[in-house]
Design a protein around this nucleic acid. Sequence first.
DNA 1: TTATCTGCAAACATTTTGCAGCGAG
DNA 2: CTCGCTGCAAAATGTTTGCAGATAA
Lengths: 133, 133
Amino acid sequence: MTATRMTRQRREILDALDTRDFRSAQSWHERLRTTGSGVGLATVYRALQALAESGEVDAVVAESGETLYRRCEAGEEHHHHLRCRVCGKAVEIDVPSFEEFAARLAAEHGYARIDHTIELTGVCPDCTAEGRA
Amino acid sequence: MTATRMTRQRREILDALDTRDFRSAQSWHERLRTTGSGVGLATVYRALQALAESGEVDAVVAESGETLYRRCEAGEEHHHHLRCRVCGKAVEIDVPSFEEFAARLAAEHGYARIDHTIELTGVCPDCTAEGRA
DNA sequence: TTATCTGCAAACATTTTGCAGCGAG
DNA sequence: CTCGCTGCAAAATGTTTGCAGATAA
C-alpha cells in the first residue's frame, strides 16, 4: 500500500500553489524560499510530480521544455487553458465537442488510447497594456 | 544581411529529414551517423533550429521535454498531427474551424497575439498490434 | 516502530556556447 | 577574402536519484 504523508513541506507547497498561475518547479521553489520556507528543490519536484499524478495539479510542457504546474480546482474534470506567454496567467476555457472530435478522428486512423493537449497562448490584457510584448 | 550557406552537412541533414517521422535532434544525429555521415551533434541542433525558424521543419515539444522535428511539406500551411506515443509515427490531420474558434475565444478574453498548439497522441495500429503498449 | 519523506550533492539528459579552423560564395 | 558554418569539448539548464537522517502515522 502506498500512503501519502502530510508533512510540513507538502503543506507549504500546497499552500503556495494556491494561485492561478502556471509556474515551473523552480519558480515555485523560489517563491517558497521567499516566503520563508526552507523546502528543498528536489522535494518540490517530487511533490509536484506526485500531485500531478494524483490529479491535484495540472502540468503542461512549455515550448522551452520546462514543465509548468498549476493548482487544479477540486473535482475539476478535463479542460483547457489560454495562457499568457509573458506573465503566465491562465484562464480556463471550454472546448466544446473537442473530445468527441478527437475520438472520432482517432478511430478513423486506427489509433488507440488517444490523448490530446490543446495549448492556447497569447498576451493577456495587462501585459499588452504595459507593452511587455 | 544574413546569408545561409548550403554546406555538405546542411544537405545531409535535409536529406535525412526526408521522412514523415517526428524525431529528436539526437535521434536524427544518430541516424545520420548510421548512414555514414560524420556531422556533429551541435551542428544538427543548430541546423534544425534554423530550419524550424525558417519554417522548413515542424517542431513539437514532447511530454518528456525533448523537442521533436519533422520535415514540412513544401508550402504547407498551418496544420496539426496525430502522433504515435510509441513509435513516433504521425499523420497530418485537419482541425476544421479551430483557428476561427481560437481567434474568437482570444478576443473574448482580451488576449492578443494568439497562438495554439493541438497535440493529439495515441498508439498507432502497428504498435497496438505488436502489443508494444 | 517503520515506511515514507526530506535535504543535499552528485548524476543525468538535453541543449547551448566558445573558439579555432574550414570553406561557400 | 570574408563571414558563416563546423567540430569539439566545456558549460548551462532542467530534472532525477542515492543515501543517511528525520518524522508522520
